[in-house]
Nucleic acid binder design. Structure first.
Length: 261
DNA sequence: TAGTCTGTTAGACA
DNA sequence: CTGTCTAACAGACT
């Protein structure tokens, strides 16, 4: 559940499922997911009312009555779902809110949960670049270093918060820029189009992946909502050329070899 | 069986 | 100091 749009969807769901209420019961099923956090202290903290559900980049946090906050990071395969009981598949932490169980599930166990005293002092968020929302072309000209590859700069959380490997492919397709292009090679027109390419992708992805509780929970939902990501061999919707893939910055990029030149 | 995967980070290297 | 690459984390899937 990893990039900004997915984390934002979980944040909105937590607002519906948890905000304004406290957990009645907490199961810490896998303490290895806790970072610098005592399992009993976390269980105790979750019994405080959730006042707000917030997001910064790919971090999700809930501010709890009493002043502390619980911070979630989903890494590759983590998410929070609403379930019938405390142990849905791959559940690592579950808490009951009224009749519903909320569960942090994570097959690969790379995600983590941390209890923090003051969000303002949380280092990963302090070091993070700005949220993409509200950035204009001149902001991006200042943020993105000319010498770097556009892809790695976009994915660098200290440059811009929340974009990952899917966003990189999708934004660069929208921008019609080659997968290994350097920031300094962008035309003025491409820079001007970049804010809309990023926010268009964010908003389209939220719209495509959001749903009511049941749809969000649907297991086996594996239809691909993206334009080029994992679509090698399929025709580019713009020009019909077969989508190709290549390793860029250590991760696979998908792109149209014809219109992204 | 070997390769791949939505993220992050430490260390090597140029 | 910059930027990029690889490995590692841990498991599921093809």
């Amino acid at each position: 559940m990893p990039e900004l749009p997915e984390v934002e969807i979980v944040r909105r769901n937590l607002e519906r499922w948890w905000q304004g209420e406290a957990a009645d019961e907490v199961w810490v099923l896998d303490p290895k997911l806790l970072r610098d956090t005592d399992p009993d202290a976390l269980a105790q903290a979750l019994r405080h009312r959730c006042e707000t559900a917030g997001r910064r980049g790919k971090y999700l946090f809930c501010e709890l009555a009493g002043g502390r906050a619980v911070v979630f990071h989903f890494r590759m395969t983590g998410k929070i779902i609403c379930a019938d009981g405390p142990e849905p598949d791959y559940a690592r932490l579950s808490w009951r809110v009224g009749d519903a169980w909320l569960a942090f599930t994570d097959p690969r166990r790379l995600g983590h949960v941390e209890l923090v005293d003051a969000l303002a002092d949380y280092t990963p968020i302090q070091k993070m670049g700005p949220e993409p929302e509200g950035l204009d072309a001149d902001d991006l000209r200042e943020l993105l270093p000319e010498r770097r590859m556009l892809k790695t700069a976009l994915m660098d959380q200290e440059v811009i918060a929340g974009l990952g490997n899917i966003a990189a492919s999708e934004v660069m397709w929208r921008l019609k820029v080659a997968p290994r292009a350097k920031v300094g090679e962008l035309s003025d027109a491409q820079f001007d189009a970049l804010p809309e390419a990023i926010m268009g992708w964010v908003e389209d992805t939220i719209a495509a992946e959001s749903g009511d509780e049941v749809e969000y929970l649907a297991l086996g939902r594996d239809d691909n909502p993206f334009t080029v990501y994992k679509r090698d061999g399929e025709p580019c919707p713009r020009c019909g050329t077969a989508i190709d893939k290549a390793k860029v910055g250590g991760r696979t990029s998908w792109y149209c070899p014809s219109c992204q030149s």
